[in-house]
Design a binder for these strands. Structure first.
Ligand SMILES: [Zn+2]
Ligand SMILES: [Zn+2]
Ligand SMILES: [Zn+2]
Ligand SMILES: [Zn+2]
Lengths: 186, 186
DNA sequence: GAATGCAATGTAATACTATTACATTTTCTC
DNA sequence: GAGAAAATGTAATAGTATTACATTGCATTC
């Protein structure tokens, strides 16, 4: 029907461009992939870039919308495949309670590529604010150590963990009547 | 079109009957509700009974199927409303990673109604076996204490927490080439 | 530099999970 | 019994994720 686009080379050149600081984080992510023998394609880079652009967790279908250009209208599998890749390589996290995704905090804040290591790939801990929806990744290792200890006792082999704490961040808590965790018995 | 059924009194008499040991657990749950000024209706009792009948986490739509009788074909809101009630009263838990529900382990194992208390209402911890899908609720309080400590430092007000550990249970681990939690760096 | 094979992507359809909005019925309280 | 609140019924829709299969891009080998 239409004139074909110039063999679009979807995996060759990114469709999106981002602010310099995001591009820098994307370059860092790309380096990490290369180092692991994984391919950071244009598609995956676009998705990661979009996630990095958000201050809050973003849903798969939001990303799908943002991926649309004049030339391309990706379908769900496109974004889910990219998300799977990024998850597998520890570049993003999925917030289970929100069915949404955030960049790994290390991409934003660490200058050293090997920090966090294990503590971030298949295990992470988050503080989720109900009010402003901000999610903070916490770096603590005590919780994981405790879980490891418990699981060792039960001969349970840990493959991944998720810890999600929901409540009010400091900012929002100061604006609200305090609703703490209630105490009731079963 | 059809003859109306005898004013079915949906909230009066349970539509389902369960084995004696399940009925006993349901009675316990009912007592807890009463004690809290909450109403354990027939609908809610049916849903809880069905959940207790399962050895593994069960999805909302599975329950919906199981709720169907010759007389009634409940719609999604019916089961979701019952689930919300049961969650709010700490009688069941939602496993986020599975979008599925399990009974609170206390219903099965505790003779004392006030055990666990807080540790079970809005906070719980689970070991999820990838292989056999069994979910075990763990009773440890150390993790929650640690999280509270962390949050106190950040002035984050905790309202609820979830800890999900995914891997292989002892039984399944013994049948498999060990796939531990990998170590890679970001 | 064709042939081969695998990784990545495109595309359409469908499955699964959850909520909204509004009508009706039941239960509680007075 | 009247009125209010809680619970349920019902239809439609929203939101999230996967399956299955065709096609393309890319790397290796001969
Ligand atoms: Zn991380
Ligand atoms: Zn906040
Ligand atoms: Zn519990
Ligand atoms: Zn198992």
């Amino acid at each position: 029907m239409n004139m074909p686009y110039p063999t679009s080379s979807s995996t060759a050149t990114p469709t999106h461009t981002f602010p310099a600081h995001i591009e820098h984080q994307l370059d860092k992510a790309t380096a990490l992939c290369t180092q692991q023998g994984a391919r950071m394609t244009a598609q995956r880079r676009d998705v990661l870039g979009l996630i990095l652009m958000h201050a809050r967790p973003v849903g798969a279908y939001d990303l799908l919308e943002e991926l649309k250009t004049a030339e391309r209208r990706p379908a769900p599998p496109t974004v889910y495949r990219a998300l799977d890749f990024l998850l597998e390589h520890g570049l993003i996290h999925r917030i289970e309670r929100l069915s949404a995704f955030i960049p790994c905090t290390n991409l934003r804040h660490c200058s050293h590529t090997h920090e966090h290591s294990e503590a971030c790939l298949h295990t992470a801990q988050f503080l989720i604010c109900r009010d402003c929806k901000t999610v903070t990744e916490i770096a603590d290792t005590t919780v994981l150590e405790t879980l490891k200890h418990i699981c060792k006792n039960e001969n349970f082999v840990i493959q991944s963990t998720s810890v999600e704490v929901e409540g009010l961040c400091a900012d929002c808590a100061s604006k609200h009547p305090t609703k703490e965790l209630p105490h009731q018995g079963v």
